[in-house]
């Protein structure tokens, strides 16, 4: 993604000059997200689905569930799989074909955030121990890329999960029926977590970069953040790109996260739960 986007040096220079003064082309503060938007139920054939927008960046998420044999190390636990598609629909630079490393990375980081925050109560997804459990598939599609697909995808995944219902299980047939029950996918609301990515661009630390800002980012640090009594709890991290994080950088990033956490978490929760 970011590595492949080439922008003219003059533009790079201007973005950096702006950031140095704490300004951005679209008038936002460095630590300010673009407007968030959500549309629920984009596919009635899914267990839960949504479209999430951060500015012009848009990601679709849909949850599907299937009955599978559990893994040997978790015979009474459901399973999770997260996939991300970065296809040519979203960006001139994205290609058709098998998942690129960029899409694999996003899917894996989001998967880890959901898993490690214990957002899903996997034990409640067991049907017959050792034999039948629900597999939760979250499929994410980049619809339009204007930067920060990471956070948009993370928010879309959690929003779709938080609103998903389990299909009716037909005990006689031992199969899922083609209808949804009233039972929600077991989400621990208190473990809600969201992906937040901080970019270092020049000397500035930036939240929610646009595509052109992202293109000149030195490094990014993605964090799955949960709420621990008003304090951020980190469940997954991933540093991307080759720029090194100095001690000073790290302190600034963590301070930024601490300062912005309550506001961000509130906004993201409102999207995911409507509250």
């Amino acid at each position: 993604m970011a590595e492949e986007v080439i922008i003219p040096n003059i533009q790079r220079k201007r973005i950096l000059e702006y950031l140095k003064e704490g300004k951005r082309f679209d008038g936002r503060a460095l630590d300010e997200f673009r407007e968030l938007g959500v549309e629920m139920n984009i596919s009635e054939n899914s267990e839960g689905s949504c479209s999430v927008k951060i500015g012009n960046t848009e990601v679709y998420a849909g949850v599907k569930m299937a009955i599978v044999t559990p893994y040997a190390d978790g015979p009474a636990e459901g399973t999770l799989s997260v996939g991300m598609e970065l296809g040519p629909m979203a960006d001139d630079d994205f290609q058709s074909g098998p998942p690129s490393i960029d899409s694999i990375e996003i899917a894996r980081v989001i998967d880890r955030g959901i898993r490690e925050s214990k957002l899903i109560d996997f034990e409640k997804l067991c049907i017959v121990s050792g034999e039948k459990v629900w597999q939760v598939s979250v499929d994410l599609y980049a619809v339009n890329n204007d930067g920060n697909l990471f956070d948009a995808a993370g928010l879309a995944a959690v929003t779709a999960l938080a609103n998903a219902k389990i299909p009716v299980y037909d005990e006689k047939e031992g199969r899922a029926k083609h209808e949804l029950s009233n039972v929600s996918v077991p989400i621990r609301k208190e473990n809600m977590c969201f992906n937040v990515t901080v970019h270092k661009i020049g000397d500035a630390f930036v939240l929610d970069p646009t595509k052109e800002e992202e293109a000149i980012s030195d490094f990014r640090l993605s964090m799955a953040l949960g709420d621990n009594d008003g304090e951020p709890m980190i469940s997954a991290m991933q540093k991307g790109n080759s720029g090194g994080i100095t001690e000073d950088d790290m302190e600034k990033i963590l301070k930024l996260v601490e300062d912005k956490f309550s506001e961000m978490f509130k906004k993201f929760s409102k999207i995911a739960t409507g509250k």
Partner: peptide
């Protein structure tokens, strides 16, 4: 022209890709 159905567009999930 490429045509694709999203994984969650139908009841039985479609494996992403062509």
């Amino acid at each position: 022209v490429t045509y694709q159905m999203m994984a969650f567009s139908v009841w039985d999930r479609i494996k992403p890709g062509t």
